[in-house]
């Protein structure tokens, strides 16, 4: 088990290095920030001076090296625009995003896993069909449509829920629903398929032959096994959500999150902020993946015991 965890962690570190590198080169594809920040009304000498000040005149190699050194010493630089440490800017934004993410994940799991199980058990009856139709609908409607519809109904027409910001618990309801829509649909379908797979296994028959009531058979013997397949899917979906899924929804509800920050800093070519924000998201994704790997081993003794 220990070796397995170590292996997951080493894999994580390597991925991180690759991402740090990619982020550096990718952010430099969009042009020179000096042009954008200062515009046209600047003398040639001042321009040269600024470029030298920011270190943008060095070769790409030495810029990369300086970047690496500062990344590993925890020095991510100042925002070109706000002149504050980027870590401070990003962390301010990270917490609201994380709260929204957690709220969406909890909602998704609470709704979709039971739905998926029901759909699997009643696959031949009307219940299963209804669940699957709803799931397909959710899959087909993008988050921004759900978001706008919610705003229209509960914000504009009924005036029940606040639309802008993250001030209270009520503020969470609509963004959570908007983000979860597709996720609920996806995970309901995966839960159903994983359960269908498990329901036909021999050990389920053994469990019934032992005289266990049906709900114990389904939840203890069935779901434990289905969760192995589910874990990897849920991990992927959550990681995808953390990476990009909430950008649009955050924009709709003016959520002071990291998605909004990413978009703005990319448009303004605020390299340090953009770099650090992308890195933070990447780190979250990698951590989620490593956590899923480890959870996977916890759920499946065959993996745990085979690899350490």
């Amino acid at each position: 088990m220990l070796i397995y965890v170590l292996r997951a962690l080493v894999k994580m570190a390597v991925t991180l290095l690759v991402i740090v590198t990619l982020v550096f080169f990718a952010t430099r594809l969009s042009g020179n920030p000096v042009d954008f920040v200062l515009g046209d009304g600047i003398s040639r000498e001042d321009r040269e001076l600024l470029i030298a000040y920011y270190g943008l005149d060095a070769t790409i190699g030495s810029q990369y090296w300086r970047y690496l050194v500062s990344v590993f010493s925890g020095e991510f630089g100042l925002s070109f625009l706000e002149r504050r440490p980027v870590s401070q800017i990003v962390f301010e934004r990270a917490w609201p995003s994380l709260k929204l993410l957690l709220s969406a994940i909890s909602f998704t799991l609470i709704v979709s896993v039971p739905l998926g199980i029901l759909a699997a058990i009643y696959r031949t009856s009307i219940i299963g069909s209804v669940v699957m139709v709803i799931a397909f609908l959710g899959y087909a409607v993008p988050a921004f449509i759900i978001g706008i519809l919610l705003v229209l109904i509960f914000g504009y027409t009924l005036n029940w829920l606040p639309v802008i910001g993250d001030g209270s618990a009520l503020h969470f309801i609509m963004p959570t629903l908007a983000i979860s829509g597709m996720l609920v649909a996806a995970i309901t379908r995966f839960t159903r398929n994983a359960m269908l797979d498990v329901l036909s296994q021999d050990y389920m028959r053994t469990a019934r032959a032992k005289g266990l009531p049906e709900w114990v058979v389904i939840l203890k013997h069935g779901l434990r096994n289905a969760s192995i397949t589910l874990l990897s899917v849920i991990g992927l979906q959550i990681a995808g959500l953390a990476a990009s899924g909430s950008v649009v929804v955050e924009a709709i509800f003016a959520w002071p999150g990291i998605g909004d920050l990413l978009v703005r800093s990319a448009i303004l070519r605020d390299y340090p902020v953009l770099q650090f924000a992308v890195l933070s998201v990447a780190i979250v994704v990698i951590v989620i993946n490593a956590a899923v790997d480890i959870a996977y081993a916890y759920a499946d003794p065959r993996i745990r015991l085979a690899k350490g």
Partner: peptide, 18 residues
């Protein structure tokens, strides 16, 4: 599992792996 119980053919797949 109490008054009547059963032993199945495939010991490899009849026990819950997790």
């Amino acid at each position: 599992g109490n008054a009547i119980s059963m032993v199945f053919q495939e010991p490899m797949t009849s026990l819950n792996p997790v």
